[in-house]
Design a protein around this nucleic acid. Structure first.
Length: 569
RNA sequence: CGGGGUGUAGCCCAGCGGUAGGGCGCCUGCUUUGGGAGCAGGAAGUCGGGAGUUCGAGUCUCCCCACCCCGACCA
Protein backbone atom coordinates (compact mmCIF):
# COMPACT_ATOMS: atom_id res chain seq x y z
CA UNK A 1 0.00 0.00 0.00
CA UNK A 2 1.23 3.45 -0.88
CA UNK A 3 0.94 5.89 1.98
CA UNK A 4 0.06 8.67 -0.43
CA UNK A 5 -3.08 6.78 -1.47
CA UNK A 6 -4.30 5.89 1.99
CA UNK A 7 -7.68 7.30 2.96
CA UNK A 8 -6.82 7.79 6.61
CA UNK A 9 -4.69 10.64 7.88
CA UNK A 10 -2.65 10.47 11.03
CA UNK A 11 -3.43 13.09 13.64
CA UNK A 12 -0.66 15.33 14.77
CA UNK A 13 -1.90 15.53 18.35
CA UNK A 14 -3.91 13.36 20.67
CA UNK A 15 -7.68 13.55 20.26
CA UNK A 16 -8.85 15.33 23.42
CA UNK A 17 -11.85 13.09 24.03
CA UNK A 18 -9.86 9.88 24.03
CA UNK A 19 -8.36 9.07 27.39
CA UNK A 20 -7.29 5.46 27.24
CA UNK A 21 -4.16 4.64 25.28
CA UNK A 22 -5.81 2.33 22.77
CA UNK A 23 -8.61 4.77 22.01
CA UNK A 24 -6.20 7.66 21.62
CA UNK A 25 -3.72 5.76 19.46
CA UNK A 26 -6.26 4.02 17.26
CA UNK A 27 -7.88 7.33 16.41
CA UNK A 28 -4.58 9.08 16.00
CA UNK A 29 -3.06 6.43 13.77
CA UNK A 30 -6.20 6.32 11.63
CA UNK A 31 -7.27 2.76 12.46
CA UNK A 32 -10.83 3.67 13.33
CA UNK A 33 -13.28 6.52 12.90
CA UNK A 34 -16.17 7.22 15.20
CA UNK A 35 -19.71 7.33 13.83
CA UNK A 36 -21.71 7.54 17.06
CA UNK A 37 -21.26 6.66 20.68
CA UNK A 38 -19.94 3.11 20.70
CA UNK A 39 -20.11 2.83 16.90
CA UNK A 40 -16.98 2.91 14.75
CA UNK A 41 -15.84 2.47 11.19
CA UNK A 42 -12.74 0.40 10.68
CA UNK A 43 -10.41 2.22 8.33
CA UNK A 44 -8.16 0.15 6.07
CA UNK A 45 -5.31 -0.07 8.59
CA UNK A 46 -7.61 -1.09 11.43
CA UNK A 47 -9.44 -3.56 9.25
CA UNK A 48 -6.22 -5.25 8.15
CA UNK A 49 -5.28 -5.79 11.75
CA UNK A 50 -8.76 -7.05 12.56
CA UNK A 51 -8.58 -9.52 9.66
CA UNK A 52 -5.27 -10.87 10.90
CA UNK A 53 -6.77 -11.50 14.30
CA UNK A 54 -9.79 -13.17 12.69
CA UNK A 55 -7.55 -15.46 10.68
CA UNK A 56 -5.62 -16.53 13.75
CA UNK A 57 -8.92 -17.23 15.48
CA UNK A 58 -10.16 -19.25 12.49
CA UNK A 59 -7.03 -21.34 12.35
CA UNK A 60 -7.21 -22.20 16.01
CA UNK A 61 -10.93 -22.83 16.04
CA UNK A 62 -10.66 -25.11 13.02
CA UNK A 63 -7.73 -26.91 14.59
CA UNK A 64 -9.83 -27.51 17.69
CA UNK A 65 -12.54 -29.12 15.59
CA UNK A 66 -14.77 -26.11 15.10
CA UNK A 67 -16.94 -25.67 12.01
CA UNK A 68 -17.47 -22.14 10.81
CA UNK A 69 -20.93 -21.01 9.85
CA UNK A 70 -22.81 -17.75 9.79
CA UNK A 71 -26.06 -16.85 11.46
CA UNK A 72 -28.09 -13.69 10.95
CA UNK A 73 -27.87 -10.61 13.15
CA UNK A 74 -31.46 -9.79 12.24
CA UNK A 75 -33.83 -12.00 14.14
CA UNK A 76 -37.49 -12.20 15.09
CA UNK A 77 -38.10 -11.07 18.64
CA UNK A 78 -40.36 -14.08 19.15
CA UNK A 79 -37.30 -16.31 19.27
CA UNK A 80 -36.08 -14.44 22.30
CA UNK A 81 -39.42 -14.53 24.01
CA UNK A 82 -39.35 -18.33 23.91
CA UNK A 83 -36.31 -18.39 26.16
CA UNK A 84 -37.31 -15.41 28.26
CA UNK A 85 -34.25 -13.52 27.22
CA UNK A 86 -36.07 -10.68 25.50
CA UNK A 87 -36.94 -9.54 28.99
CA UNK A 88 -33.57 -10.49 30.44
CA UNK A 89 -31.68 -8.35 27.94
CA UNK A 90 -34.20 -5.54 28.25
CA UNK A 91 -32.97 -2.19 26.99
CA UNK A 92 -29.64 -3.70 26.00
CA UNK A 93 -31.32 -5.18 22.96
CA UNK A 94 -31.89 -3.15 19.81
CA UNK A 95 -35.42 -3.79 18.68
CA UNK A 96 -37.82 -2.43 16.11
CA UNK A 97 -40.64 -3.52 13.84
CA UNK A 98 -40.40 -4.62 10.24
CA UNK A 99 -42.80 -3.23 7.62
CA UNK A 100 -45.48 -5.69 8.59
CA UNK A 101 -45.24 -4.65 12.21
CA UNK A 102 -43.47 -7.80 13.24
CA UNK A 103 -41.12 -7.21 16.20
CA UNK A 104 -37.50 -7.76 15.24
CA UNK A 105 -34.23 -7.53 17.12
CA UNK A 106 -30.56 -7.16 16.34
CA UNK A 107 -28.94 -10.11 18.02
CA UNK A 108 -26.63 -9.51 20.99
CA UNK A 109 -25.59 -13.20 20.89
CA UNK A 110 -26.71 -16.37 19.14
CA UNK A 111 -27.64 -19.19 21.51
CA UNK A 112 -31.27 -19.22 20.38
CA UNK A 113 -30.51 -19.42 16.68
CA UNK A 114 -27.72 -21.94 16.97
CA UNK A 115 -29.78 -24.18 19.24
CA UNK A 116 -32.63 -24.25 16.74
CA UNK A 117 -30.15 -24.95 13.97
CA UNK A 118 -28.75 -27.93 15.84
CA UNK A 119 -32.21 -29.09 16.81
CA UNK A 120 -33.02 -29.40 13.12
CA UNK A 121 -29.81 -31.27 12.31
CA UNK A 122 -29.01 -33.48 15.27
CA UNK A 123 -31.10 -36.47 16.24
CA UNK A 124 -28.63 -39.02 17.53
CA UNK A 125 -25.69 -39.21 19.90
CA UNK A 126 -23.81 -40.27 16.76
CA UNK A 127 -24.14 -36.65 15.51
CA UNK A 128 -22.35 -35.36 18.61
CA UNK A 129 -20.14 -33.72 19.68
CA UNK A 130 -20.25 -30.58 17.57
CA UNK A 131 -18.49 -27.27 17.82
CA UNK A 132 -19.96 -24.53 15.67
CA UNK A 133 -18.61 -21.04 15.42
CA UNK A 134 -18.93 -17.78 13.55
CA UNK A 135 -17.29 -14.40 13.41
CA UNK A 136 -20.09 -11.97 13.17
CA UNK A 137 -21.46 -8.62 14.23
CA UNK A 138 -23.23 -8.34 17.57
CA UNK A 139 -25.43 -5.50 18.71
CA UNK A 140 -25.82 -4.46 22.31
CA UNK A 141 -27.24 -1.13 23.33
CA UNK A 142 -24.79 -0.63 26.16
CA UNK A 143 -25.74 1.98 28.72
CA UNK A 144 -22.28 3.46 28.50
CA UNK A 145 -19.93 2.71 25.65
CA UNK A 146 -16.38 3.64 26.55
CA UNK A 147 -12.69 3.66 25.71
CA UNK A 148 -12.87 3.41 21.94
CA UNK A 149 -13.24 -0.22 20.90
CA UNK A 150 -13.20 -1.58 24.45
CA UNK A 151 -16.95 -1.27 24.95
CA UNK A 152 -19.05 -0.59 21.90
CA UNK A 153 -22.60 -1.16 20.75
CA UNK A 154 -21.83 -2.84 17.44
CA UNK A 155 -18.90 -5.21 17.43
CA UNK A 156 -17.50 -8.31 15.85
CA UNK A 157 -17.46 -11.38 17.99
CA UNK A 158 -16.21 -14.87 17.47
CA UNK A 159 -18.86 -16.94 19.16
CA UNK A 160 -18.62 -20.70 19.36
CA UNK A 161 -21.07 -23.24 20.72
CA UNK A 162 -20.40 -26.81 21.70
CA UNK A 163 -23.01 -29.57 21.70
CA UNK A 164 -22.31 -32.69 23.66
CA UNK A 165 -24.04 -35.86 24.75
CA UNK A 166 -22.67 -35.98 28.27
CA UNK A 167 -20.69 -34.03 30.85
CA UNK A 168 -17.41 -35.76 30.06
CA UNK A 169 -17.74 -34.80 26.42
CA UNK A 170 -18.67 -31.26 27.35
CA UNK A 171 -15.56 -31.11 29.46
CA UNK A 172 -13.46 -32.21 26.49
CA UNK A 173 -14.94 -29.51 24.28
CA UNK A 174 -14.46 -26.98 27.04
CA UNK A 175 -10.82 -27.88 27.47
CA UNK A 176 -10.28 -27.82 23.71
CA UNK A 177 -11.73 -24.34 23.54
CA UNK A 178 -9.68 -23.18 26.52
CA UNK A 179 -6.54 -24.42 24.80
CA UNK A 180 -7.53 -22.81 21.50
CA UNK A 181 -8.03 -19.54 23.37
CA UNK A 182 -4.61 -19.74 24.97
CA UNK A 183 -3.12 -20.32 21.52
CA UNK A 184 -5.03 -17.44 19.99
CA UNK A 185 -4.00 -14.92 22.61
CA UNK A 186 -0.41 -16.10 22.60
CA UNK A 187 -0.25 -15.79 18.82
CA UNK A 188 -1.69 -12.29 19.05
CA UNK A 189 1.11 -11.38 21.43
CA UNK A 190 -1.13 -10.97 24.44
CA UNK A 191 -0.26 -12.37 27.85
CA UNK A 192 -3.69 -13.16 29.23
CA UNK A 193 -4.87 -14.52 32.55
CA UNK A 194 -7.47 -17.24 32.65
CA UNK A 195 -9.73 -16.44 35.56
CA UNK A 196 -12.64 -18.20 37.20
CA UNK A 197 -15.73 -16.23 36.37
CA UNK A 198 -19.32 -15.87 37.34
CA UNK A 199 -21.47 -17.98 35.06
CA UNK A 200 -24.55 -15.84 35.42
CA UNK A 201 -28.17 -16.76 35.91
CA UNK A 202 -28.31 -19.25 33.04
CA UNK A 203 -24.81 -20.67 33.14
CA UNK A 204 -23.83 -24.03 34.44
CA UNK A 205 -20.88 -24.93 36.58
CA UNK A 206 -17.75 -23.77 34.90
CA UNK A 207 -16.92 -20.41 33.47
CA UNK A 208 -13.62 -18.74 32.75
CA UNK A 209 -12.64 -15.35 31.48
CA UNK A 210 -9.50 -14.46 29.60
CA UNK A 211 -8.24 -11.10 30.71
CA UNK A 212 -5.39 -8.89 29.73
CA UNK A 213 -3.94 -7.01 32.67
CA UNK A 214 -4.11 -3.28 31.99
CA UNK A 215 -4.65 -0.21 34.13
CA UNK A 216 -7.68 0.82 32.14
CA UNK A 217 -9.45 -2.52 32.40
CA UNK A 218 -13.05 -2.73 33.47
CA UNK A 219 -12.73 -5.92 35.46
CA UNK A 220 -10.92 -6.62 38.68
CA UNK A 221 -9.06 -9.89 38.87
CA UNK A 222 -8.08 -11.45 42.14
CA UNK A 223 -4.87 -13.44 41.92
CA UNK A 224 -2.79 -15.44 44.31
CA UNK A 225 0.94 -14.94 43.81
CA UNK A 226 1.66 -18.22 45.55
CA UNK A 227 -0.65 -20.74 43.91
CA UNK A 228 -2.35 -20.33 40.55
CA UNK A 229 -5.70 -19.13 41.90
CA UNK A 230 -7.06 -16.49 39.54
CA UNK A 231 -10.65 -15.30 39.62
CA UNK A 232 -12.73 -12.37 38.57
CA UNK A 233 -13.56 -10.33 41.67
CA UNK A 234 -17.23 -10.98 40.90
CA UNK A 235 -16.62 -14.65 41.50
CA UNK A 236 -13.57 -14.78 43.76
CA UNK A 237 -13.74 -16.40 47.14
CA UNK A 238 -11.59 -15.25 49.96
CA UNK A 239 -11.01 -16.02 53.54
CA UNK A 240 -10.71 -13.19 55.98
CA UNK A 241 -9.29 -13.21 59.48
CA UNK A 242 -11.56 -14.70 62.11
CA UNK A 243 -12.30 -12.34 64.91
CA UNK A 244 -11.35 -13.88 68.23
CA UNK A 245 -14.51 -15.18 69.85
CA UNK A 246 -15.33 -14.02 73.33
CA UNK A 247 -17.93 -15.29 75.76
CA UNK A 248 -21.35 -14.11 74.55
CA UNK A 249 -22.63 -11.08 76.38
CA UNK A 250 -26.16 -9.82 76.48
CA UNK A 251 -27.49 -7.19 74.16
CA UNK A 252 -26.90 -3.66 75.37
CA UNK A 253 -28.25 -0.44 73.90
CA UNK A 254 -25.85 2.47 73.44
CA UNK A 255 -26.45 6.01 72.29
CA UNK A 256 -24.44 6.90 69.17
CA UNK A 257 -25.41 10.48 68.33
CA UNK A 258 -24.75 11.47 64.74
CA UNK A 259 -22.97 8.21 63.85
CA UNK A 260 -23.88 7.10 60.33
CA UNK A 261 -20.96 5.07 59.05
CA UNK A 262 -19.17 1.92 60.09
CA UNK A 263 -15.86 3.77 60.34
CA UNK A 264 -17.46 6.38 62.57
CA UNK A 265 -19.15 3.76 64.68
CA UNK A 266 -16.00 1.71 65.17
CA UNK A 267 -14.10 4.84 66.05
CA UNK A 268 -16.75 6.12 68.45
CA UNK A 269 -16.99 2.86 70.36
CA UNK A 270 -13.33 1.97 70.14
CA UNK A 271 -13.86 -1.41 68.46
CA UNK A 272 -12.42 -2.74 65.17
CA UNK A 273 -14.75 -2.63 62.14
CA UNK A 274 -14.70 -6.42 62.13
CA UNK A 275 -16.63 -6.29 65.42
CA UNK A 276 -19.52 -4.51 63.73
CA UNK A 277 -22.18 -5.66 61.32
CA UNK A 278 -23.34 -3.38 58.57
CA UNK A 279 -26.69 -3.25 56.91
CA UNK A 280 -27.08 -2.60 53.18
CA UNK A 281 -30.38 -2.21 51.37
CA UNK A 282 -31.06 -3.43 47.87
CA UNK A 283 -34.02 -3.64 45.55
CA UNK A 284 -34.24 -7.05 43.91
CA UNK A 285 -36.80 -7.26 41.11
CA UNK A 286 -38.73 -4.50 42.83
CA UNK A 287 -38.62 -6.05 46.31
CA UNK A 288 -36.56 -4.59 49.12
CA UNK A 289 -33.79 -6.79 50.52
CA UNK A 290 -32.01 -6.34 53.81
CA UNK A 291 -28.38 -7.43 53.69
CA UNK A 292 -26.14 -7.95 56.70
CA UNK A 293 -22.38 -8.34 56.42
CA UNK A 294 -19.44 -7.91 58.75
CA UNK A 295 -18.42 -4.26 58.99
CA UNK A 296 -14.94 -4.70 57.52
CA UNK A 297 -16.25 -6.45 54.39
CA UNK A 298 -18.13 -5.30 51.30
CA UNK A 299 -21.03 -6.88 49.47
CA UNK A 300 -20.32 -8.62 46.17
CA UNK A 301 -23.41 -7.73 44.18
CA UNK A 302 -22.95 -10.54 41.69
CA UNK A 303 -22.87 -13.13 44.44
CA UNK A 304 -25.85 -11.46 46.07
CA UNK A 305 -27.73 -11.47 42.80
CA UNK A 306 -27.05 -15.18 42.39
CA UNK A 307 -28.04 -15.95 45.98
CA UNK A 308 -31.34 -14.14 45.43
CA UNK A 309 -31.86 -15.55 41.91
CA UNK A 310 -32.49 -11.94 41.06
CA UNK A 311 -32.82 -10.54 37.54
CA UNK A 312 -32.52 -6.91 38.46
CA UNK A 313 -30.58 -5.89 41.54
CA UNK A 314 -29.60 -2.41 42.60
CA UNK A 315 -28.97 -0.41 45.74
CA UNK A 316 -32.18 0.93 47.25
CA UNK A 317 -32.78 4.65 47.16
CA UNK A 318 -33.34 6.70 50.29
CA UNK A 319 -37.13 6.85 49.87
CA UNK A 320 -37.28 3.09 49.34
CA UNK A 321 -35.30 2.52 52.53
CA UNK A 322 -37.64 4.81 54.39
CA UNK A 323 -40.72 3.22 52.85
CA UNK A 324 -39.54 -0.17 54.10
CA UNK A 325 -39.49 1.29 57.62
CA UNK A 326 -35.71 1.09 57.97
CA UNK A 327 -33.48 3.56 59.77
CA UNK A 328 -30.48 4.24 57.56
CA UNK A 329 -27.34 4.48 59.64
CA UNK A 330 -28.78 2.56 62.56
CA UNK A 331 -30.38 -0.48 60.98
CA UNK A 332 -29.90 -4.12 61.83
CA UNK A 333 -31.71 -7.38 61.29
CA UNK A 334 -32.81 -7.44 64.93
CA UNK A 335 -36.56 -7.43 65.00
CA UNK A 336 -36.81 -7.02 61.22
CA UNK A 337 -39.70 -8.94 59.67
CA UNK A 338 -41.67 -8.79 56.49
CA UNK A 339 -38.65 -8.00 54.36
CA UNK A 340 -36.28 -10.47 52.76
CA UNK A 341 -33.10 -10.84 54.80
CA UNK A 342 -29.76 -11.99 53.41
CA UNK A 343 -26.64 -12.35 55.51
CA UNK A 344 -23.07 -13.03 54.60
CA UNK A 345 -21.32 -16.02 56.15
CA UNK A 346 -19.06 -13.57 57.93
CA UNK A 347 -21.72 -12.96 60.57
CA UNK A 348 -20.78 -16.39 61.92
CA UNK A 349 -17.10 -15.48 62.13
CA UNK A 350 -17.01 -13.52 65.35
CA UNK A 351 -19.49 -12.55 68.00
CA UNK A 352 -20.59 -9.72 70.26
CA UNK A 353 -21.06 -7.44 67.27
CA UNK A 354 -22.10 -3.83 67.32
CA UNK A 355 -25.24 -3.45 65.23
CA UNK A 356 -27.90 -0.85 64.59
CA UNK A 357 -30.82 -0.64 67.00
CA UNK A 358 -33.34 0.42 64.36
CA UNK A 359 -33.80 3.72 66.18
CA UNK A 360 -32.04 6.92 65.19
CA UNK A 361 -28.66 7.50 66.88
CA UNK A 362 -28.79 4.20 68.71
CA UNK A 363 -26.90 0.93 68.35
CA UNK A 364 -26.70 -2.37 70.20
CA UNK A 365 -23.52 -3.89 71.55
CA UNK A 366 -23.03 -7.65 71.86
CA UNK A 367 -25.39 -8.79 69.10
CA UNK A 368 -25.06 -12.47 68.24
CA UNK A 369 -26.40 -14.64 65.44
CA UNK A 370 -28.71 -16.53 65.66
CA UNK A 371 -29.54 -15.57 69.25
CA UNK A 372 -30.58 -11.99 68.47
CA UNK A 373 -31.58 -12.02 64.81
CA UNK A 374 -32.35 -14.35 61.95
CA UNK A 375 -31.86 -14.39 58.21
CA UNK A 376 -33.68 -15.92 55.23
CA UNK A 377 -30.53 -16.63 53.25
CA UNK A 378 -27.07 -17.21 54.68
CA UNK A 379 -24.45 -17.33 51.94
CA UNK A 380 -21.04 -16.12 50.80
CA UNK A 381 -21.82 -12.70 49.39
CA UNK A 382 -18.57 -11.00 50.37
CA UNK A 383 -16.33 -9.22 47.90
CA UNK A 384 -12.82 -10.63 47.82
CA UNK A 385 -10.25 -7.94 48.47
CA UNK A 386 -6.50 -7.80 48.02
CA UNK A 387 -4.82 -8.61 51.29
CA UNK A 388 -7.42 -11.21 52.20
CA UNK A 389 -6.35 -14.80 52.03
CA UNK A 390 -6.35 -17.21 49.11
CA UNK A 391 -9.09 -19.82 49.48
CA UNK A 392 -6.70 -22.48 48.10
CA UNK A 393 -3.41 -21.84 49.83
CA UNK A 394 -3.93 -19.08 52.35
CA UNK A 395 -1.45 -16.65 50.83
CA UNK A 396 -2.38 -12.96 50.70
CA UNK A 397 -4.35 -12.17 47.53
CA UNK A 398 -3.59 -9.44 45.03
CA UNK A 399 -5.87 -7.51 42.69
CA UNK A 400 -5.24 -6.30 39.16
CA UNK A 401 -7.36 -4.54 36.58
CA UNK A 402 -7.96 -6.27 33.29
CA UNK A 403 -9.81 -6.13 30.00
CA UNK A 404 -11.95 -9.19 29.33
CA UNK A 405 -11.10 -10.41 25.83
CA UNK A 406 -12.63 -13.86 25.98
CA UNK A 407 -15.17 -15.78 27.99
CA UNK A 408 -15.98 -19.45 27.93
CA UNK A 409 -18.65 -21.28 29.81
CA UNK A 410 -20.62 -24.41 30.24
CA UNK A 411 -24.21 -23.59 29.51
CA UNK A 412 -25.77 -26.90 30.44
CA UNK A 413 -29.19 -27.72 29.04
CA UNK A 414 -31.13 -24.49 29.51
CA UNK A 415 -31.37 -23.69 25.80
CA UNK A 416 -31.70 -27.22 24.54
CA UNK A 417 -34.51 -27.96 27.00
CA UNK A 418 -36.30 -24.68 26.42
CA UNK A 419 -36.10 -24.96 22.64
CA UNK A 420 -36.39 -28.74 22.50
CA UNK A 421 -32.98 -29.64 21.09
CA UNK A 422 -32.97 -33.32 22.03
CA UNK A 423 -31.05 -36.39 20.89
CA UNK A 424 -31.39 -40.13 21.34
CA UNK A 425 -28.62 -41.66 23.40
CA UNK A 426 -27.18 -45.12 22.78
CA UNK A 427 -29.93 -46.65 24.86
CA UNK A 428 -32.69 -44.96 22.93
CA UNK A 429 -33.36 -42.40 25.63
CA UNK A 430 -34.35 -38.90 24.58
CA UNK A 431 -32.09 -36.34 26.27
CA UNK A 432 -31.34 -32.65 25.97
CA UNK A 433 -28.05 -31.74 24.31
CA UNK A 434 -25.52 -30.30 26.72
CA UNK A 435 -24.12 -27.00 25.57
CA UNK A 436 -21.17 -24.73 26.07
CA UNK A 437 -20.45 -21.30 24.62
CA UNK A 438 -17.24 -19.47 23.92
CA UNK A 439 -16.79 -15.85 22.93
CA UNK A 440 -13.99 -13.54 21.85
CA UNK A 441 -14.51 -9.85 21.16
CA UNK A 442 -12.38 -9.38 18.05
CA UNK A 443 -12.31 -5.58 18.04
CA UNK A 444 -11.80 -5.51 21.76
CA UNK A 445 -8.89 -7.88 21.33
CA UNK A 446 -7.36 -5.40 18.90
CA UNK A 447 -7.94 -2.57 21.36
CA UNK A 448 -6.42 -4.63 24.16
CA UNK A 449 -3.39 -5.37 22.02
CA UNK A 450 -2.86 -1.68 21.38
CA UNK A 451 -3.54 -0.87 25.01
CA UNK A 452 -0.80 -3.23 26.01
CA UNK A 453 1.71 -2.55 23.24
CA UNK A 454 2.60 1.10 22.88
CA UNK A 455 5.15 3.68 23.93
CA UNK A 456 5.30 7.46 24.03
CA UNK A 457 5.68 7.58 20.24
CA UNK A 458 2.80 5.36 19.28
CA UNK A 459 1.63 1.80 18.77
CA UNK A 460 4.06 -1.13 18.91
CA UNK A 461 2.18 -3.79 16.95
CA UNK A 462 2.81 -7.43 17.72
CA UNK A 463 4.00 -8.84 14.39
CA UNK A 464 1.15 -11.32 13.78
CA UNK A 465 -1.53 -8.66 13.99
CA UNK A 466 0.27 -5.65 12.54
CA UNK A 467 -1.64 -4.20 9.56
CA UNK A 468 1.59 -4.39 7.59
CA UNK A 469 4.80 -6.07 8.58
CA UNK A 470 7.15 -3.56 7.00
CA UNK A 471 7.12 0.21 6.63
CA UNK A 472 9.26 1.40 3.73
CA UNK A 473 10.12 5.07 4.06
CA UNK A 474 11.49 7.00 1.11
CA UNK A 475 13.32 10.15 2.18
CA UNK A 476 13.61 12.91 -0.36
CA UNK A 477 11.34 11.32 -2.89
CA UNK A 478 11.84 14.11 -5.39
CA UNK A 479 15.31 12.66 -5.85
CA UNK A 480 14.83 10.26 -8.73
CA UNK A 481 17.45 7.84 -7.56
CA UNK A 482 15.75 7.51 -4.19
CA UNK A 483 12.30 7.24 -5.74
CA UNK A 484 13.28 4.43 -8.08
CA UNK A 485 15.24 2.56 -5.40
CA UNK A 486 12.33 2.86 -2.97
CA UNK A 487 9.85 1.80 -5.65
CA UNK A 488 12.01 -1.22 -6.37
CA UNK A 489 12.23 -2.13 -2.69
CA UNK A 490 8.46 -1.84 -2.35
CA UNK A 491 8.02 -4.10 -5.33
CA UNK A 492 10.53 -6.59 -4.01
CA UNK A 493 8.79 -6.81 -0.62
CA UNK A 494 5.45 -7.46 -2.26
CA UNK A 495 6.93 -10.15 -4.45
CA UNK A 496 8.43 -11.75 -1.38
CA UNK A 497 4.96 -11.96 0.12
CA UNK A 498 5.69 -9.44 2.85
CA UNK A 499 2.91 -7.02 3.85
CA UNK A 500 4.37 -3.62 3.14
CA UNK A 501 3.32 -0.05 3.61
CA UNK A 502 5.29 2.34 1.44
CA UNK A 503 5.64 5.97 2.48
CA UNK A 504 6.05 7.41 -0.98
CA UNK A 505 4.94 10.94 -0.11
CA UNK A 506 7.02 13.54 -1.88
CA UNK A 507 6.01 16.53 0.15
CA UNK A 508 6.30 15.12 3.65
CA UNK A 509 9.46 15.99 5.58
CA UNK A 510 11.64 13.28 7.07
CA UNK A 511 10.46 14.07 10.58
CA UNK A 512 6.84 13.70 9.55
CA UNK A 513 7.52 10.30 8.04
CA UNK A 514 9.47 9.04 11.03
CA UNK A 515 6.82 10.20 13.44
CA UNK A 516 4.09 8.58 11.40
CA UNK A 517 6.09 5.36 11.24
CA UNK A 518 6.46 5.34 15.03
CA UNK A 519 2.77 6.17 15.47
CA UNK A 520 1.58 3.34 13.22
CA UNK A 521 4.01 1.00 14.93
CA UNK A 522 4.71 -1.49 12.16
CA UNK A 523 7.35 -4.03 13.20
CA UNK A 524 10.15 -3.23 10.74
CA UNK A 525 11.05 0.14 9.25
CA UNK A 526 13.21 0.42 6.13
CA UNK A 527 14.58 3.79 5.12
CA UNK A 528 15.73 4.58 1.62
CA UNK A 529 17.61 7.88 1.39
CA UNK A 530 20.39 9.52 -0.59
CA UNK A 531 22.71 8.99 2.35
CA UNK A 532 22.20 5.21 2.50
CA UNK A 533 21.97 4.82 -1.20
CA UNK A 534 25.49 6.13 -1.66
CA UNK A 535 26.69 2.91 0.00
CA UNK A 536 24.05 0.78 -1.69
CA UNK A 537 22.45 0.27 1.70
CA UNK A 538 19.03 0.48 3.29
CA UNK A 539 18.48 1.41 6.91
CA UNK A 540 16.66 -1.20 9.02
CA UNK A 541 15.06 -0.57 12.38
CA UNK A 542 12.68 -2.62 14.45
CA UNK A 543 9.96 -0.58 16.11
CA UNK A 544 11.44 -1.17 19.53
CA UNK A 545 15.11 -0.93 18.54
CA UNK A 546 16.82 2.12 19.97
CA UNK A 547 19.28 2.34 17.07
CA UNK A 548 18.87 1.69 13.39
CA UNK A 549 21.17 -0.63 11.47
CA UNK A 550 22.04 -0.96 7.81
CA UNK A 551 21.83 -3.73 5.31
CA UNK A 552 22.91 -3.94 1.71
CA UNK A 553 20.19 -3.36 -0.86
CA UNK A 554 20.58 -6.96 -2.01
CA UNK A 555 20.11 -8.42 1.43
CA UNK A 556 17.02 -6.54 2.54
CA UNK A 557 14.43 -9.25 1.94
CA UNK A 558 16.48 -11.80 3.77
CA UNK A 559 17.08 -9.45 6.68
CA UNK A 560 13.39 -8.60 6.94
CA UNK A 561 12.41 -12.27 6.84
CA UNK A 562 14.91 -13.01 9.57
CA UNK A 563 13.53 -10.27 11.80
CA UNK A 564 9.90 -11.23 11.24
CA UNK A 565 10.63 -14.88 11.94
CA UNK A 566 12.75 -14.20 15.00
CA UNK A 567 10.16 -12.07 16.67
CA UNK A 568 7.32 -14.50 15.97
CA UNK A 569 8.91 -17.33 17.92
C1' C B 1 -30.69 6.72 34.75
C1' G B 2 -27.70 10.07 38.55
C1' G B 3 -23.11 13.37 38.75
C1' G B 4 -19.38 16.22 35.99
C1' G B 5 -17.62 18.25 31.31
C1' U B 6 -17.54 19.72 26.04
C1' G B 7 -19.96 21.35 21.29
C1' U B 8 -16.97 27.67 16.76
C1' A B 9 -13.41 25.48 9.29
C1' G B 10 -10.96 18.57 8.09
C1' C B 11 -8.08 18.61 13.32
C1' C B 12 -6.81 21.46 17.97
C1' C B 13 -8.60 25.79 20.10
C1' A B 14 -9.36 31.44 21.20
C1' G B 15 -13.38 34.86 21.07
C1' C B 16 -18.19 35.57 26.02
C1' G B 17 -23.41 41.60 23.50
C1' G B 18 -21.22 45.33 18.21
C1' U B 19 -17.68 43.12 10.78
C1' A B 20 -16.15 35.15 12.52
C1' G B 21 -10.45 34.57 14.50
C1' G B 22 -5.51 31.82 15.32
C1' G B 23 -2.41 27.35 14.81
C1' C B 24 -2.16 22.76 12.16
C1' G B 25 -3.95 20.56 7.81
C1' C B 26 -5.67 21.60 2.57
C1' C B 27 -4.91 24.26 -2.66
C1' U B 28 -1.22 27.34 -6.05
C1' G B 29 3.84 28.95 -6.73
C1' C B 30 8.92 29.24 -5.21
C1' U B 31 12.46 27.34 -1.83
C1' U B 32 13.79 23.15 1.32
C1' U B 33 14.68 17.64 2.47
C1' G B 34 17.42 12.44 8.33
C1' G B 35 12.84 13.44 13.66
C1' G B 36 6.18 17.23 12.71
C1' A B 37 10.70 23.21 7.41
C1' G B 38 10.38 28.64 5.12
C1' C B 39 8.10 32.64 2.17
C1' A B 40 3.95 34.52 -0.73
C1' G B 41 -0.97 33.96 -2.27
C1' G B 42 -5.69 31.24 -1.66
C1' A B 43 -10.10 28.01 -0.45
C1' A B 44 -12.78 26.49 3.53
C1' G B 45 -18.02 28.25 8.90
C1' U B 46 -26.21 26.44 9.25
C1' C B 47 -20.57 29.23 15.70
C1' G B 48 -24.75 21.49 17.73
C1' G B 49 -30.50 22.62 17.02
C1' G B 50 -34.89 25.45 18.39
C1' A B 51 -37.33 29.29 20.96
C1' G B 52 -36.71 33.82 23.63
C1' U B 53 -34.36 38.71 25.47
C1' U B 54 -32.09 42.83 22.63
C1' C B 55 -31.56 48.06 17.88
C1' G B 56 -28.01 43.99 17.54
C1' A B 57 -26.73 37.05 20.07
C1' G B 58 -20.87 32.09 19.26
C1' U B 59 -21.56 35.54 23.39
C1' C B 60 -27.38 36.36 27.78
C1' U B 61 -32.08 33.07 29.14
C1' C B 62 -34.98 28.58 28.47
C1' C B 63 -35.77 23.88 26.08
C1' C B 64 -33.73 20.03 23.22
C1' C B 65 -29.73 17.10 20.88
C1' A B 66 -24.90 14.93 20.45
C1' C B 67 -20.26 13.43 22.39
C1' C B 68 -16.61 12.47 26.54
C1' C B 69 -15.54 11.14 31.79
C1' C B 70 -17.22 8.95 36.80
C1' G B 71 -21.05 5.91 38.78
C1' A B 72 -25.33 2.68 38.05
C1' C B 73 -25.61 -1.03 34.29
C1' C B 74 -22.89 -4.72 31.36
C1' A B 75 -26.97 -13.42 31.60
Amino acid sequence: MRFSRMVSKTLRSDPPDAETASHRLMLRAGLIHQVASGVYSYLPLGLRSLRKIENIIREEMDAAGGQELRMPALQPQELWEQTGRREAFGDNMFSFEDRRGRPMVLAPTHEEVVTNLVKANVQSYRDLPLILYQIQTKFRDEPRPRAGLVRVREFDMKDAYSFNADEASLDESYQAMAQAYRNIFRRCGLPVMMAEADSGAIGGKDSHEFLLATETGEDTVITCPSCSYTANAEKAESTYPEVPTEPDQSLEEVSTPGIKTIAGLADFLGVPESKTLKAVFYMSDGEPVFVTIRGDLDVNEVKLKNALQSHDLRLAEDQEVKAAGLVAGSASAIGINGIKRVADLSITSGNNFVVGANKPDTHFKYANYPRDFDTDILADIALAQPGQLCPRCGHALEATKGIEVGHIFKLGTFFSETLGAMFLDSEGQQRPIIMGCYGIGVGRLLAAAVEKNNDENGIVFPIPIAPYQVHVVGLNMSNEEVASAADRLYQEMQEAGIDVLYDDREEAAAGVKFNDADLLGLPVRLVVSPRNLKNAQVEVKGRTDSEAGSVSVDGVVEEVRRRLAEATL
